[in-house]
Simulated scan of single mutants.
Amino acid sequence: MLTFIGLGLFDEYDVSLKGLEAIREADLVYAEFYTSHLMGTTPEKMEKLYGKQVHLLSREDVEQQPEWLDNAKDKNIAFLTGGDTMVSTTHVDLRLRAKNLGIETRLIHGASITSAVSGLTGLQNYRFGKSASIPYPYESRRGTKVVSETPYDTIKQNSELGLHTLVFLDIDNEKGYMSVNLALELLLEVERKRGEEVMNRAVAVGIARAGSEKPLVKADYAENLKNFDFGKPLHILVVPGKLHFLEAEALVKLAAGPEEIMENIE
Rank of each mutant, 00 (worst) to 15 (best):
I103Q: 06
D172V: 00
E196D: 14
V92G: 14
E21S: 15
A204G: 15
A208H: 06
Q53C: 02
A78V: 04
G40V: 07
K145W: 09
G241M: 08
L243D: 00
R209C: 05
G206V: 10
R59N: 10
V217C: 12
I134M: 03
E247W: 00
H55E: 12
K48W: 01
V147P: 01
L120Y: 14
V54T: 03
L57N: 04
F168Q: 06
D14W: 08
L38W: 09
D172P: 00
H164L: 06
D93V: 14
F128L: 11
L182G: 02
G110Y: 08
A248S: 07
D70W: 06
M46S: 07
R127C: 02
Q124G: 00
E259H: 11
V252P: 09
L182K: 05
I236Q: 04
K99V: 14
V87R: 01
H91I: 07
P233F: 03
G129V: 10
L246S: 09
E223R: 11
P215V: 09
L107Y: 10
R127E: 14
A78T: 05
Y126D: 14
L163C: 08
E247A: 00
L20I: 11
L169W: 02
A116P: 07
G40Q: 08
I171D: 01
T165Q: 05
G82S: 11
I5H: 09
F33R: 01
E197Q: 13
L225R: 06
R209F: 06
N100L: 15
L187A: 03
K145T: 07
E191L: 06
A250H: 02
L182M: 13
K193G: 04
S140W: 04
M199S: 05
L7Q: 14
H91N: 15
K218I: 14
N100R: 15
K175E: 07
R192C: 03
L107T: 14
N227K: 06
L216K: 11
E32P: 00
D74G: 03
H244N: 00
Q65N: 15
F128E: 14
S133N: 12
